[in-house]
Amino acid sequence: MNKNPIANAERMLIPACSIDEDVGVVTLKLETPGVTKEGLNVSVEANTLTIEGRRGGNPPSGEWLLRERPAGSYRKIFTLDETIDRDKIEAQLADGMLTVRLHIQEAAKPREIAIN
């Protein structure tokens, strides 16, 4: 066992992520191939949104002829600002893509004010 605690820490992968906003909804799309629903953990604590994903199944045993896929678990941490409604966060996992929808609070949405 290596004596350096940093060297023994688990290496986490940062998944590729796209962020866009469309009429009051911010959508995060993350590439998390191999992550099962059971291995996924999305949590919000104060201003921090943490997404962690673990690949399902065990790596096969045998002789590796080619090894390009990154091994390890995914982790991505976002900081949420005040405009995001903490109670309306939806996450969906399909085909190795995780989609997280963050709704902008009604009070923070831009609105037009009628002029009398």
Binding site: P60, S61, G62, E63, W64, L65, L66, R67, E68, R69, P70
Partner: peptide, 13 residues
């Protein structure tokens, strides 16, 4: 895409 190839005693994965 990134690819892994593993050879076991009876198959190629």
């Amino acid at each position: 895409p990134a690819i892994d190839v593993v050879e076991t005693h009876d198959e190629i994965l």
